[in-house]
């Protein structure tokens, strides 16, 4: 992180090698175009540089911090863009060709994500998809589905707890 803050070339490249592809992949899924995903990736690393001094490794992993920045920026953009067709979400895509060793940690993270999603019921998958990948608020989901707001919030919490428990014994966090 110190290298990033100092603008050190090797440090930035190392961080990009670790997180560039996951950030881009998430941007592509949420925003629906390569151009938007590339802009998001650039914004994420600039934001990481800007907020880097606030990162406290004792309070959480770098991956959690950085991917949360990425998701928040993507959702902000998604919610700003009105009239733009949101990508149709397919939570569990086909796993692409076996990645090389450079992407081993990314593959493990994806395994954890797929394991977590598999632990959810179909209704919970749809709920999480709408909130996390389409940026819909609980109120919007409530109004769309005609389900009481409190119920949506309770179900979102239950789904997140399931996601957490699915990897509880496996994750180093």
């Amino acid at each position: 992180m110190q290298g990033l803050l100092a603008g050190d070339d090797a440090s930035i490249r190392a961080l990009y090698a670790r997180f560039g592809r996951p950030v881009y992949s998430m941007g592509l899924r949420l925003l629906g175009s390569r151009e938007a995903a590339e802009e998001l990736t650039q914004d994420v690393f600039l934001t990481a540089w800007r907020k880097g001094a606030r990162f406290d490794p004792s309070r959480g992993r770098l991956s959690t911090w950085l991917m949360t920045i990425a998701h928040n920026l993507a959702v902000d953009r998604l919610r700003r863009e009105t009239g733009v067709t949101r990508p149709t979400l397919v939570l569990v895509d086909e796993v692409p060709d076996a990645p090389g060793t450079d992407h081993e940690s990314e593959l493990m993270e994806r395994d954890a994500a797929l394991r977590a999603i598999a632990s959810l019921s179909d209704a919970e998958k749809r709920l999480i998809a709408r909130a996390y990948f389409r940026g819909m608020t609980a109120r919007e989901i409530s109004e769309t589905d005609g389900v009481p707001l409190g119920t949506v919030k309770t179900r979102l919490r239950s789904a997140l707890i399931k996601v957490r428990k699915a990897n509880e014994l496996k994750e180093p966090w």
Binding site: P22, S25, R29, T68, L91, E106, I128
Partner: peptide, 8 residues
């Protein structure tokens, strides 16, 4: 955790 769900 969900951030890694989209296909790479």
């Amino acid at each position: 955790t969900l951030a890694y769900a989209p296909a790479p």
